[in-house]
Amino acid sequence: MTVENILEIKNLKTYFSLDKDRVVKAVDGVSYVVPKGKTLGIVGESGSGKSITALSVLRLVDEPGEIVDGEILFKGEDLVKKKVSEMRKIRGNQISMIFQEPMTSLNPVHSVGKQIKETLHIHEDLIRQEANHKALDLLKLVGIPSPEKRLTQYPFELSGGMRQRVMIAIALACNPELLIADEPTTALDVTIQAQILELIKELQAELHMSVMLITHDLGVVAETCDFVAVMYAGKVVEYADVDTLFESPKHPYTVGLLNSLPRHDIKMEELTPIKGMVPSPFEMPEGCRFAPRCPFATALCQEKLPDLEKKENGQEVRCWIYTDEWDGEEVKVYEPNATT
């Protein structure tokens, strides 16, 4: 491939050992890449391990979570092997992160200005006036109205949308090469979500950042991402560029998600939900983890876990249907159930 990757995650495993016998394999052999200057969307439902993967990149997984295996190559260097002090130099500097809850992600007892300047002081050698200037510039950059006033305000004085802008300002303070956004708009109203997504897109183009956007919203993915990784029960089940994924999704889970989604832009007669529910982390199926819910599952699926295999257009899919070993009938996994 000619595209350079800013981040390559290889066979990452992040486990939570609750006690001797109970281990939650939240991230269990995840691999994907973030191409430089592009946006990768990570989609999946709760419990898919998408957020834990992102936190693993910054090595911010809380106890008892632990990266037990795999590599996280950032510009070719393995973050898993870095010392804590080296990681601290990367956090907030080369890789930044914004979170889902703007309401609780800012410290309530420090002013907005102080929280922005903190990042600047950690990573850059600035005198006070320079830091003040830069903080103000950042607030202007993220489009906050009357930025001078905001510097001395406290988070509780700002609306949810403005707080998320402040979070973005903090994240961008040191011109990161990679921005990880974990459900950045989930807690916001749609009109505010539209503002924030627009802002992230603009800034990405302006600052030549790569973005990793974690979301459960397929609409957000379609509009903002260049590539998509679909995760299910701790594994990537499909990876493709965004057009390919929405045009010809291959994994039955991806298809199930698309068919479950009630849409506002077209009239749909019927939703086709995925039956059953996500398996308990303590009782993961032996074979394909989606097999118990999959309408096409065969004996092979129940027994053996398929690999994530490359298809045409760089699409990758973890499903027996697309292999030579497939033991079932020929099936048509995806039929668009709506006309667009």
Binding site: T191, A194, L197, G219, E247
Partner: peptide, 23 residues
């Protein structure tokens, strides 16, 4: 504006958005 703000799960269909300012 509300309708146009919702992202559509179809990358080919570029939506035309009325961006509302402020809160």
């Amino acid at each position: 504006a509300l309708l146009s703000a919702i992202p559509v799960p179809n990358p080919k269909k570029k939506s035309e958005r009325i961006l509302l300012e402020g809160d």
